[in-house]
Amino acid sequence: MAQYAVLIYAPDSAHSPDATPEDLEDCNEHADELTDSGSMVMAYALTPRDMATSIRGLTITDGPFLDSKEVVAGFYVIEAPDLDAALAIARTNPVVHQGGGVEVRPVHSGGVIERTKETTG
């Protein structure tokens, strides 16, 4: 088994601070599916592009790093035996049929860092 990161590209993220449960229904349903199937390793939904702040060199700017039609709206990591299997899982993301898409990247290394009490304190 290998791990693949799935980056969700959409015109914007549905996860605004005041999003209603209905706004997030599609996303949550899909996340539940992947969790139930056992392929989901971790997942993060990001807030909309208006919340983003970018740093390039010494300059801080308001907004996403790349000025483009789509932004990274979230990302998750799945486990799959090979790229075909990973693509088959990734293409079930509803965003694919909602004007956005996903990018699948093999994970080199990493994961959630286990932290001791002092550092979280």
Partner: peptide, 14 residues
């Protein structure tokens, strides 16, 4: 090799 593109014949459905 890195992305694990499989060395297999696609299934009929694919």
């Amino acid at each position: 090799s890195t992305a694990r593109i499989p060395y297999r014949m696609p299934r009929p459905a694919e």
